[in-house]
Design a protein around this nucleic acid. Sequence first.
DNA 1: TGACAGAGATTGGTAAGGCCAATTTGCTAG
DNA 2: CTAGCAAATTGGCCTTACCAATCTCTGTCA
Lengths: 249, 249
Amino acid sequence: MAADTQRLYERIAQKLASGIAQGDYKVGQRLPSERELAQNFSVSRPTIREAIIALELDRLVEVRVGSGVYVINTEPPGGKAGATDIGPFELLEARRSIEGEACALAAARIDDSQLAELAALLNEMRTENEHDVMLSEDADRRFHEVIAAATQNSGIIAAVKMLWDARTRSPQSRSLSTKVRATGVKPRIDEHTAILKALRQRDADGAREAMRDHLTRVIDALLKATEVQELERARQQIAEQRKRYAASK
Amino acid sequence: MAADTQRLYERIAQKLASGIAQGDYKVGQRLPSERELAQNFSVSRPTIREAIIALELDRLVEVRVGSGVYVINTEPPGGKAGATDIGPFELLEARRSIEGEACALAAARIDDSQLAELAALLNEMRTENEHDVMLSEDADRRFHEVIAAATQNSGIIAAVKMLWDARTRSPQSRSLSTKVRATGVKPRIDEHTAILKALRQRDADGAREAMRDHLTRVIDALLKATEVQELERARQQIAEQRKRYAASK
DNA sequence: TGACAGAGATTGGTAAGGCCAATTTGCTAG
DNA sequence: CTAGCAAATTGGCCTTACCAATCTCTGTCA
């Protein structure tokens, strides 16, 4: 692993970061000079420089040439949000709320080339449905991302992207989605078609409802799948008990 | 400015990153050694090391001690979402959509202690209004974050937090908000009161509307402020021209 | 009192060298 | 001829030492 060979600058950066978070150095304050820090931590100056660069990339400090390095944040701003693990149901609920609104905004602003792209993706989902689940899933993601892009709002785009990233990162969500597929639920072509139709008509309320309906159905399918899963687990448990009972007889 | 004093390691890191994105070095491949890169870019080895650390923190490369540095991604995965600069109006529009829904969800789930916290924050905003703008602004942020927390949905919470982080990070949004304050617009106590009232009644639709109304008014105020700002800029330009004309006469 | 110049401090970048880890290569033994 | 082991090579890691560029502050002079 990488844990045993932790690099020097990383340790220094962590110490410095915890010092900042703890309030040893407050926002706006200047850190000790590179030379001083080097002496304090008993390391060389380049190492300190590397640690400071690491903090700088985390938006914790700002270095002003010839003046010093100054604290600008007590904790990494975007770093933590991207790393949190979100449960599958939470994730879908959040998507229903956020992508629903995204869809409503998109309805007013989507252009023809984006509509064509959505139609193409829908076709892709339809044809590659049986062959390759990975491809159709990718098409699904791109479908939703095109809608986000159509809002022309980078805040919305970032939020939608964050949720999808969380989904691909979460092992729980991934295993659950494969489970759902295993129960024979086809990707929801008709629901996506309804979304596209509402977008074509520039119907904001209709588009919002179509998207919310789609994600609500996904949640329902997930609920049913977990039920099936629970049932299956119970059945196995019973079977195992029976076997054990038969063996001990 | 920071543009002219771009640090060396940043330029090298950018060149390297674009080289990776462009396919000069493919995923899994080893980069040239530190010594080689130093020669190629005509910089010293510490500088190369700093650039490599920057790439490493962006999850673009992985350095294996004693072996070399290897490409593991062609583009930063989560780093971009947190770093993008979002315009002030985009930001508020995104907040109106997302926090509106958050408010509707929160109405159904918020508990009494959270309602009390909101009331306390409202009070804080009211009393500290005249003394300290920083404090009342902080209370504003916490007000909205408590509502997000009340949804009990970490996806929503992360999205709301990301947008507020983007706001504090964006120099444009910050300067604009101070400008708005300079035009004498008080923090919107009554609008926040309306939100709290709807939440107290567990009225999801009412809460959504109250939040959307609040943020719509903020957008309007911002629009008006930018108008004033444009006017002021024009006035200054004219004054400068007049001065120059007078000087050259 | 105010503006300007210079000294001191601080970061930026470079050079060279010793050290440790991983890989590769070549030699030896079976 | 092959398998295994050891030495050499390669590569990153860290340090010391040095000079350059820049900012800040202070003292002086008008």
